[in-house]
Computed example of a mutant assay.
Amino acid sequence: MVAADNLQKTPESSQFDLRAYLKERQKLCEDALDKAIPIRYPEKIYEAMRYSLLAGGKRLRPILCLASCEMMGGTIEIALATACALEMLHTMSLIHDDLPAMDNDDYRRGKLTNHKVYGEDIAILAGDGLLAYAFEYVVTHTQNVPLERVLQVIARLGRATGATGLVGGQVLDLESEGKTDISLETLNFIHNHKTAALLEACVVCGGILAGASSEDVQRLSRYSQNIGLAFQIIDDILDITATGEQLGKTAGKDQKAQKVTYPSLWGLQESKQKAQHLISDACAELEPFGEKALPLKELAHFITNRKH
Rank of each mutant, 00 (worst) to 15 (best):
L86I: 10
N6Q: 15
V204Q: 13
P100I: 09
I63S: 00
P38S: 04
G129M: 02
F231C: 00
L238Q: 09
T82E: 12
A4T: 10
G56L: 01
R109T: 11
L184R: 09
S280R: 12
M92R: 12
L157P: 12
D5F: 08
L22W: 11
L265Y: 05
D17C: 09
D34Q: 15
M102K: 04
H96T: 04
L99S: 00
Y262W: 12
D103I: 11
G290W: 14
E43C: 01
E77L: 04
A163I: 08
H90E: 13
C283W: 15
K58A: 01
A242D: 13
K27A: 14
A293S: 14
V138R: 09
L166F: 11
I279C: 14
C202K: 10
G158E: 10
D128N: 14
H191M: 09
E245R: 15
A123Y: 10
G169I: 09
K23D: 13
C29T: 10
E77V: 00
M72D: 02
Q232E: 03
A101Y: 06
S176V: 04
F302V: 00
K111G: 07
I227Q: 07
Q258D: 00
Q170C: 01
L86M: 06
E12Y: 15
R219A: 10
R19I: 01
L94F: 12
R219H: 11
T142M: 02
M71Q: 08
M71L: 13
D31C: 01
N114Q: 02
S183R: 08
H90A: 06
G178K: 03
T186R: 12
T75C: 10
A201H: 13
D105M: 14
D98V: 04
W266N: 02
G244I: 11
V203D: 08
M49E: 08
A212R: 15
M49C: 02
L94S: 06
A257V: 03
L286T: 06
S52F: 01
T261G: 10
T186V: 07
A134H: 14
V2F: 05
L125A: 05
A48E: 04
D103K: 03
L147P: 00
P295F: 07
G56S: 05
L125I: 03
A282S: 14
E285G: 03
L7W: 12
V2E: 13
K307V: 01
N192H: 14
E245C: 06
R59S: 00
D106P: 14
E177D: 00
T142V: 02
D106R: 12
